[in-house]
Computed example of a mutant assay.
Amino acid sequence: MSPLSLPGVYAPQADTVLLAEALAREPLCPGARALDLGTGTGALALAAARRGAQVTAVDVSWPAVLTARLNARRARLPVRVLHGDLLDPVAGQTFDLILSNPPYVPAPSARPPRRGAARAWDAGSDGRLVLDRICRRAPALLAPGGRLLLVHSALSDPEATLTQLRTAGLRAAVTEHRYIPFGPVLRARQTWLRATGLLRNAADKEELVIIRAERPH
């Protein structure tokens, strides 16, 4: 059953598929505590719940929260979906697995949109407004042996992600990458991206990466 997507909610695309494939390869014991940050339709949360995880999903968008709750009900899966800003709703909790497909697309405006569909992908001039917050805060929410699976574009500096996660004491690496054709957003921004140096002149595809980070026991 494919998840429904209400208007203004980010529908699963290539980045969601890539992260779902990484999740499918990840060991996940029944009852493991999993967190899906920026859940959107809840597609990744539902994938974890189908494997027996106790799943909490968070999104700052009320339409996304309502969509994820609706999809969990349709799938008859016990996913707890919370509204709030990133990790705020789960402060003080720990998880065995954290998943995130956050906003990561570089945008001409340094400030993220406060409403509308672009809220799901625009992430400041370097694409790192949300990524940096995850790197700073997510490691403290991982239980010993807990893992973080994160997908984002190579345009938004995977090395910065790796450096921050390693500095926080995690073992981190790029475990997969995939090239996909530019979607509508990147096609519309090609001139700006080339002018800023984020995009090579000959590039006509976007590179997505999966970053896996683990807290040592």
Rank of each mutant, 00 (worst) to 15 (best):
P63E: 10
L165W: 14
A173N: 13
A72V: 00
G127E: 13
R80K: 13
F95I: 12
C29L: 15
R69S: 08
P113K: 02
G169S: 11
D132S: 13
A123M: 00
A64N: 02
P144H: 15
G52S: 06
F95N: 14
A117L: 15
L155A: 00
V81D: 13
R128N: 02
D157H: 08
L99C: 06
A32I: 11
V58K: 04
R33E: 13
A57N: 10
L46F: 06
Y104R: 04
V105N: 07
L35E: 05
R111C: 12
G124A: 06
G169I: 11
L149Y: 04
E159S: 11
D88H: 10
W62H: 02
V105E: 12
L87N: 09
V151N: 08
T161S: 14
A68D: 02
E159M: 10
N71S: 08
L162I: 03
R147C: 01
R76E: 08
P144T: 05
T161R: 06
D96W: 01
S61A: 11
R51M: 09
A117H: 05
G127W: 14
A160D: 11
Q164V: 00
D85G: 07
L77H: 12
L28G: 04
H152W: 01
R115A: 15
C135P: 00
A48W: 00
R73N: 06
T94G: 04
G38K: 01
V81L: 10
L86N: 03
S153I: 01
